[in-house]
Design a protein around this nucleic acid. Structure first.
Length: 225
DNA sequence: ACACTGATAATCT
DNA sequence: GATTATCAGTGTA
C-alpha cells in the first residue's frame, strides 16, 4: 500500500479540460485517475469506461426536460461531480462537462482500483475478484465510498474529498465506442467509450423496460452529426 | 459464459 | 402510479 500522495495520476484536471462537449470529454477522461478520501482512508481508481449524456439534446439525459432540483449540478460549473440515486439502492457518479448554459455530464461506468484495494474490498463484499470491485457505475461509487453527500463537489480542487487527475494517454487504437448500457431512449447512439485493454469494462446490455412490450418511437434525428 | 428476475425508493408525470 | 444511466443471485450450458 503506497501512501505517497502522488502515487497515481498526473496533474489535476482544470475547468478548461472539462468545459467541453461530453462526447469530446470521454477520451479525455479515459485513463484518468479518480481519488476519494474519507475518514476510512483513500481509494484511487483508473477510469476505463465512460458514457456521455448531452443535456437537453439527449433523450436519455436527466437534463433532457430542463433543470430540476436533482439535475441542477449538470448545468455547471464543469469539473464538479454529479451523483444521483437509482433503483432505490445505488449511486452513480458523473463528471460535469460543458456548462455555460449547457447541461452535460460523463457517467463513470467502470474503473480499476489502483490504491486502497483493502478498503475498496471491504466496501464491496459481493465482489468475487479485484476486477469486479468497480466494474459498473454503482459498483464504482460503492468501492470509492461516493454517495449523495458528494453531489456537487469540485473535482479540480486540491482540498476536495474527491479529486480527478490526468492519467497516461491511451494508445490511439485503444479507445473503442459503442451504444450506452441499459439506455432505452437513443439506445443506438455510440456515446459509450472504453479502453479495449481493460478487463474491468462492464458487459453491454440493451435498454428497454422489462415486462412491457411495445416499442416507443423516439426520434433521434437531431442526435446525429 | 449468458439469460432472467426481485429488490427498492427517489423522481417525475 | 410509472419509470429508472443497477446489482446480486439463481439457473442453464
Amino acid at each position: 500500500m503506497s501512501r505517497g500522495g502522488q502515487a497515481a495520476g498526473g496533474r489535476r484536471f482544470g475547468r478548461a479540460d472539462l468545459g467541453i462537449d461530453p462526447v469530446a470529454a470521454c477520451p479525455v477522461l479515459l485513463g484518468s485517475v479518480l481519488e476519494a478520501t474519507s475518514a476510512d482512508g483513500t481509494v484511487a481508481a483508473r477510469v476505463v469506461e465512460v458514457e456521455a449524456y448531452c443535456g437537453t439534446d439527449d433523450p436519455a439525459s436527466h437534463a433532457y426536460r430542463g433543470r430540476t432540483a436533482r439535475n441542477a449540478v449538470m448545468w455547471g460549473p464543469a469539473g464538479h461531480l454529479y451523483v444521483y440515486f437509482v433503483y432505490g439502492l445505488h449511486f452513480c457518479a458523473n463528471v460535469v462537462c460543458a456548462g455555460d448554459g449547457q447541461a452535460g455530464a460523463v457517467l463513470l461506468r467502470a474503473a480499476e482500483i489502483t490504491d486502497g484495494q483493502d478498503l475498496a474490498t471491504a466496501r464491496r463484499p459481493a465482489a468475487r475478484s479485484a476486477r469486479d470491485l468497480a466494474r459498473g457505475p454503482a459498483r464504482l461509487t460503492a468501492a470509492l465510498g461516493l454517495t449523495r453527500e458528494h453531489n456537487g463537489v469540485d473535482l479540480t480542487a486540491a482540498d476536495s474529498p474527491v479529486r480527478l487527475r490526468a492519467g497516461e494517454r491511451p494508445e490511439p487504437g485503444e479507445v473503442e465506442h459503442g451504444p450506452r448500457v441499459g439506455v432505452a431512449a437513443a439506445g443506438d447512439v455510440p456515446w459509450r467509450s472504453w479502453l479495449s485493454s481493460s478487463r474491468a469494462v462492464s458487459r453491454y446490455r440493451p435498454g428497454g423496460r422489462r415486462g412491457a412490450n411495445g416499442p416507443d418511437s423516439v426520434t433521434t434525428s437531431r442526435l446525429e452529426g
